[in-house]
């Protein structure tokens, strides 16, 4: 094959359209986030309004996604539930990454005793059975949106600490960090100005995955009856409620399960995508 003959094929590859593997997950996550934010203004029925006569209705023109065991509108509950799941899903790992990221970066940068201490702390946290710890925590402090978020946030500390520690270790040995020391930059300045910007992309990719993990974890907590207290809807709580009527009205459990599945899958896709964007670039530099 001659070089010139193959040229057009290569030029064509340059203008490749946005891949479906990226576009679909992005669109789904955007839709979920948009609805969760605008839920109050798009004319949804009250997600807590019960109408026992209209319980367990299948999807119809009146109730697009049907009604649940207590005759509440499923669509409204899915959207408001999405709001709850997203708040927990976004805030809990954010909290965990703030603390875990700081621990991991300090460990990877200072090494020595700091590292030993941090790794020990992470190992202790990891040694606890995750869900049992969250259950105990919520049972003890009481069920509330804040406490559930806090409990799940603490659970995400070890993973965040490990990711940031590994990344910091890799970057802290680079010559530009040594160069910053030769000009007399303080440790704080080196950590925030030189290392953090390089660690952040990898952390962001991992955070997207963590959001999906937390959404599932919140679902598990609700399923066990220790999630967000009723009547506030959450996807996990809806699946738990729907479980009672799986034989007569399967949609009450399957619809929230499907929505959760799609959201988690999309977030994982996006997380992988971001990680792929970040990694080769780092090795190329």
């Amino acid at each position: 094959m001659s070089a010139s003959a193959a040229e057009p094929a290569i030029v064509a590859r340059r203008g490749r359209p946005l891949s479906w593997a990226l576009a679909l997950p992005l669109a789904w996550v955007a839709l979920v986030v948009f609805l969760a934010i605008t839920a109050d203004w798009i004319g949804l029925p009250d997600p807590a309004a019960q109408e026992l006569i209209l319980r367990r209705k299948p999807p119809s023109a009146e109730f697009l996604l049907g009604t649940d065991n207590l005759g509440r509108d499923m669509l409204s509950r899915i959207i408001y539930g999405g709001r709850t799941s997203l708040i927990v899903g976004i805030c809990a790992p954010f909290f965990g990454f703030l603390i875990g990221g700081a621990i991991g970066m300090s460990a990877g940068y200072f090494r020595g005793k700091v590292d030993l201490l941090a790794v020990g702390f992470i190992d202790i946290l990891l040694a606890f059975p995750t869900l049992v710890l969250a259950l105990t925590f919520v049972a003890y402090l009481g069920q509330s949106l804040f406490n559930v978020t806090l409990a799940l946030g603490i659970l995400s500390i070890p993973a965040a600490a490990r990711v940031s520690r590994a990344n910091t270790l890799a970057w802290a040995n680079r010559d530009f960090v040594l160069a910053a020391r030769t000009i007399g930059a303080s440790n704080w300045r080196i950590l925030t100005r030189e290392i953090l910007p390089n660690v952040l992309p990898a952390m962001f990719a991992f955070w997207l995955v963590a959001v999906s993990v937390i959404i599932v974890a919140e679902g598990a907590l609700s399923f066990l009856g220790l999630g967000i207290p009723a009547p506030q809807p959450s996807w996990g709580g809806m699946i738990a409620d729907g479980r009672e009527a799986l034989d007569v009205a399967p949609h009450t459990a399957l619809i929230p399960a499907a929505v959760m599945f799609l959201t988690v899958l999309s977030l994982n896709f996006l997380g992988d995508m971001v990680r792929n964007l970040v990694d080769p670039r780092r090795s190329a530099l």
């Binding site: 001659s2 070089a3 290569i10």
Partner: peptide, 10 residues
């Protein structure tokens, strides 16, 4: 001859 397709062309 060896050519590599890159984002900036051949």
């Amino acid at each position: 001859r060896v050519g590599f397709g890159t984002v900036r062309g051949l």
